[in-house]
Design a protein around this nucleic acid. Structure first.
Length: 480
RNA sequence: GGCGGGGUAGCCAAGUGGUAAGGUCGGGGUCUGCAAAACCUCUAUUCGCGGGUUCGAUUCCCGCCCCCGCCUCCA
């Protein structure tokens, strides 16, 4: 089954085929964070979506080369460093580190490179591109000394967002100091230095200053991935102007189609509104972890809604994620028990004849097929949970042989290559083991009151005691 | 005003021209010393509203309503 993706450019589902179908290489560029504070959950929704996309393409045999930029110079980083009274690089460093820590917490695979806007090599590329645009009359230096892109010279400007330039209407977000431009829609390629920038400046043919935001991505993408990309992702708020500008700049330089597939994810909402730093209604990953949730629980909560639908962040949703993951964990444990507990791993399980060949037996829709359809995660999770219920039912009935349990674990392994949500068995702390043993003794003595107290005690510490036909089982609940 | 996304059970959310996946919550069971887990079972005659096409529409067409976002540097 072919992979189909919704392309913002055409506003239609398109069958995915990379530039180089033979090599199966996919060049993917994803807009990264501006490191002036901690990224918020809305940002991470986008990164989790991109991670899911990368993992699914990987499972389908594509070799994804991904680049994610780090914006470490802009108005906000400059303001932050000046308020903190430290050099720009010193101000952004801890936020860069925090960003990578957060990626790890959410089990987001690292991109192949994370270029930074202030890297001299990247700056050189930006200046080179601006120079080319100047030569071609696609850019001009205004009276304020800044260099702007001349959108009237680029007929395709507006094609991605489907905007008619004549219809552009100001929303008051235009800064008043941009009156030197030929057209209100012209955007800065190089921003001339002014006093507020302090020590932050680089030399260029047009005087000291710093790069505009958009040129950053054009330069890094072409420098690291080439003039044409397969996939470019971001949040819907990047469609205009950011990605529109990227197309104009890049194609203005190369004359080639910049991106084949534009993918954008919808916003994360809080109480029905977009989560945004500018609105002050945002949570950072650290806020949620601080409430006792684990990275994989957050990952699941961000991933479980289709990327093009708005996702409302709620604590109820976090609880649901916790319960659902606990169910998956328990299922995996049971399958493992079915493979472990049999006396002879060579022999089929005691109970029934074991079929020799256990391809995970699915008639009907497959997990990965669902994802082929524009990352239909709900459909895919539906397959997973139906599988869980069915295999649990058969384990209850003693119908699963060791070989089949093993086959299901293999199936889960492939599924989790994409989901990245499997739990890790936490080692039993001595203290917990002691309480558990005391409870076993109490139960043997039929001291129910004492055993119930010990169960509560364990629960208070995040461990659950269950009495099964094979004796007491201690498992970690929630978290991890 | 222009351009998008969305409106399906308490909540989250798939989906198909033929009569509604899955998750979660809640009720009832099996099991258990009691629980928990797991499983079984119940919970939308109905898919924002009104028309139309059709033997039949949640699914196609037309009109309308509501929510959210973008419209120059927010993922």
């Amino acid at each position: 089954m072919a992979i189909r993706l919704f392309n913002t450019y055409s506003r239609a589902l398109e069958e995915f085929s990379p530039l180089d179908p033979a090599g199966r290489e996919v060049k993917m560029y994803t807009c990264g964070p501006t490191v002036y504070s901690h990224a918020h959950l809305g940002n991470f929704r986008a990164y989790v979506f991109e991670d899911l996309l990368q993992r699914h393409l990987g499972l389908r045999g594509f070799n994804v080369r991904r680049v994610m930029n780090i914006t470490d110079v802009d108005d906000k980083t400059i303001r932050g460093s000046s308020e903190a009274g430290v050099p720009l690089a010193e101000f952004t460093a801890p936020f860069k580190k925090a960003f990578f820590d957060d990626l790890d917490t959410l089990r987001i695979k690292r991109a192949d490179s994370f270029p930074e806007a202030t890297d001299p090599r990247e700056l050189a590329k930006m200046i080179e591109m601006i120079g080319t645009l100047m030569e071609r009359g696609l850019a001009y230096q205004a009276e304020d000394k800044s260099v702007y892109f001349r959108i009237n010279k680029f007929p395709d400007y507006g094609k991605l967002a489907h905007f008619d330039l004549a219809e552009l209407r100001s929303t008051g977000r235009v800064k008043s100091d941009e009156y030197d431009k030929e057209h209100v829609g012209d955007f800065a390629l190089w921003k001339a230095w002014d006093e507020e920038d302090g020590a932050v400046k680089w030399e260029s043919p047009w005087g000291d200053g710093r790069p505009g935001w958009h040129i950053e991505c054009s330069a890094m993408a072409t420098q690291l991935l080439g003039e044409q990309l397969d996939i470019h992702c971001g949040g819907v708020d990047n469609i205009f102007p950011h990605h529109e500008a990227e197309i104009a700049q890049t194609e203005g330089c190369t004359g080639k189609k910049f991106v084949r597939y534009w993918l954008h994810c919808a916003h994360l909402m809080v109480e029905g509104q977009k989560m945004a730093k500018s609105l002050g209604n945002f949570y950072t990953l650290r806020d949620v972890i601080g409430k006792g949730y684990s990275g994989r629980e957050v990952r699941y909560a961000l991933m479980r809604v289709h990327y093009r639908a708005p996702l409302n962040f709620t604590w109820e949703g976090m609880e649901e994620a916790r319960v659902a993951l606990g169910r998956i964990d328990e299922w995996v444990r049971r399958l493992n028990a079915e493979t472990d507990s049999k006396d002879n791993p060579e022999a089929p399980s005691s109970k029934l004849q074991a079929p020799e060949k256990h391809q995970a037996p699915m008639a009907g829709p497959d997990f990965h097929d669902a994802l082929d359809d524009d990352l239909n995660i709900s459909g895919a999770l539906g397959v997973l949970f139906e599988t869980i219920r069915e295999t649990n039912r058969r384990i209850d009935g003693g119908e699963i042989a060791a070989g089949e349990a093993k086959a299901w674990l293999d199936w889960w392994g492939r599924v989790d290559q994409v989901l990245g949500i499997s739990g890790e068995e936490a080692a039993l702390p001595e203290e917990i083991a002691g309480l558990a043993e005391a409870r076993v003794q109490a139960r043997l003595a039929k001291e129910w009151r004492k055993s119930d107290e010990l169960r509560d005690e364990l629960a208070a510490r995040g461990w659950e005691a269950r009495d099964t036909k094979d004796g007491q089982k201690i498992t970690r609940r929630g978290g991890a």
